[in-house]
């Protein structure tokens, strides 16, 4: 049951988006998200939507998979839409008892819903086209200027790396412990929520114990392999900006400038 879990949702590939430097991707995504917030208007959102679908096509990630990432958020989107329907004064379209649906409400609701979907799809596209490892490296590199302010960028990245490495190990261990407890009569499926929660304790205690033991072992193994923090450490996979990245930055800058100008007009 716990075997086929996917960490992040990396979709391996060799597209333009996959080959871009992860740092560039993160930064461009951030700016793009800010633009989505800053330029709230129907024509801009139309262009943004077209751009998003274009990028999905370039990435070669199946459309179905991308849209599936919206699934857990349908309710929130719907809720926001309905909320906006009733909360803007303006030309009355329809009345249910005391609640008035206005033209402005429909427009605003639609806009905000599209904004939410854009935000989600764009961010998902980043995790679809970037392996967790590259994301971690990129974060370390992007956060390293803040080291002087005391932000432990390297340590954070190392923690993420180790967490990613051990998630599958700990999942299979949880599976094993559950089976061991079930074979001794533990019941995780029936009963009230409270009693089921209580039954989780015999899983969590051994799991934590073993995680601590693993941490001890791992620390020893890291020390034996000359680990001494981020100082003086090099990386096998250097992050270098290629021609691709400059092209992407250029195209993006033009696009943003165009958007800004058209929004101002």
């Amino acid at each position: 049951m716990l075997n086929n879990i996917m960490i992040g949702q990396y979709f391996p590939g060799d597209s333009f988006l996959h080959r871009m430097d992860a740092r560039v991707k993160i930064l461009l995504l951030l700016i793009l998200l800010i633009e989505v917030f800053a330029f709230t208007s129907a024509p801009v959102y139309l262009i943004m939507t077209v751009l998003t679908f274009l990028m999905i096509m370039i990435s070669k990630v199946p459309m179905r998979m991308v849209l599936r990432s919206l699934k857990p958020l349908w309710w929130i989107i719907l809720f926001t839409f309905v909320l906006h329907l009733f909360s803007h004064p303006g030309r009355e379209l329809y009345r249910i008892w005391q609640f008035v649906i206005t033209q402005e409400g429909v427009e605003q609701g639609a806009l905000i819903s599209v904004r939410l979907m854009l935000l989600i799809i764009l961010s998902t596209l980043l995790t679809f086209t970037t392996s967790p490892l590259k994301l971690t490296d990129a974060l370390e590199s992007l956060l390293s200027p803040f080291k002087r302010l005391g932000l432990p960028a390297h340590e954070l990245a190392m923690m993420m790396t180790i967490a990613l490495r051990f998630i599958p190990t700990l999942i299979s261990e949880t599976d094993k412990i559950m089976k061991a407890q079930q074979s001794r009569g533990a019941d995780f499926v029936t009963g009230s929520i409270m009693s089921r929660l209580k039954n989780m304790v015999p899983i969590l205690v051994p799991l934590f114990l073993s995680a601590f033991r693993r941490a001890d072992d791992l620390a020893l193994a890291m020390e034996a392999r000359c680990y001494r923090g981020g100082e003086g450490r090099t990386r096998m996979k250097e992050m270098k900006l290629g021609r691709l990245d400059y092209v992407a930055i250029g195209v993006f800058a033009l696009f943003s400038a165009g958007l800004g100008v058209s929004y101002a007009l």
Binding site: L133, T169, R225
Partner: peptide, 19 residues
């Protein structure tokens, strides 16, 4: 299970030389 640090074999082998 407790001595491989990275999520990919080649990154793990590179851990020592990187240090």
């Amino acid at each position: 299970d407790n001595q491989l640090i990275a999520g990919v074999v080649e990154d793990d082998v590179a851990f020592g030389p990187e240090n």
